[in-house]
């Protein structure tokens, strides 16, 4: 792992906290786009100095998807809900940030217990991945609006993908592309569902979605 990876991972961790802290939907989408970019760069740079044409193409596709298509789609859905653009959190911002911090700490501790390969030991790759997964999870459980839950899911996926970087040789290109396509499909379907929620409930507040109970 070339030394350039570490700062990128640190920025990823930073982006996590930014995601947790942002109170406006538009800023949330912007940070998620930046996370996509960081991920793409990491993908390209992760294996040695001269990345092959295949990884470069893959990185380009990843950036196009994560930083281009998905944020544009999310932006389009938020435009329908003109009134409420804020992120209504169930838990206050401060407590989610604190939880984020605790999560990252746990991720670091947990990462150290797992035996890493010699070239990966220095890099805090696993903790960053786990922290991002935890942030995504946190976003989904503590935010009220459906859009934020989609973004939370996206962060969770980015975390998983981040961890996937270590295995770039094991995963033949075809499977990686398929994984990418699947993620986009998931976002696409979620986007459609959010539109339908808007149409039926005229607001994407998921706490209203509690009619089905015993």
């Amino acid at each position: 792992m070339p030394p350039i990876v570490d700062p990128l991972l640190v920025t990823a961790l930073l982006l996590n906290f930014l995601l947790l802290g942002s109170s406006r939907l538009r800023s949330l989408i912007r940070w998620i786009a930046w996370q996509g970019v960081v991920l793409g760069v990491l993908l390209a740079v992760a294996h040695g100095d001269h990345p092959g044409p295949r990884t470069l193409a893959l990185a380009a596709v990843a950036v196009a998807m994560k930083a281009g298509l998905v944020p544009w789609l999310l932006y389009r859905t938020t435009r329908q809900d003109a009134l409420r653009r804020e992120v209504e959190p169930l838990l206050s911002f401060v407590s989610t940030l604190l939880l984020g911090g605790v999560g990252t700490g746990i991720a670091l501790a947990f990462g150290s217990t797992l035996p890493m390969l010699p070239e990966h030991t220095t890099v805090l790759l696993v903790p960053a991945a786990l922290a991002t997964v935890f942030t995504g999870f946190l976003l989904m459980t503590t935010r009220r609006k459906a859009i934020t839950q989609v973004i939370g899911y996206l962060t969770l996926e980015n975390g998983v993908f981040l961890f996937g970087l270590t295995l770039s040789e094991a995963m033949p290109a075809m499977v990686e592309i398929a994984l990418l396509l699947d993620l986009v499909a998931a976002i696409f379907v979620m986007g459609i569902t959010v539109n339908h929620i808007y149409r039926t409930f005229s607001s994407a507040d998921t706490t209203a979605l509690s009619a089905l109970r015993d």
Binding site: M140, T206, S210, A211
Partner: peptide
């Protein structure tokens, strides 16, 4: 299990 999805995820 009061029916809201946040609780399920938690």
């Amino acid at each position: 299990q009061a029916g809201n999805v946040h609780l399920y995820l938690a």
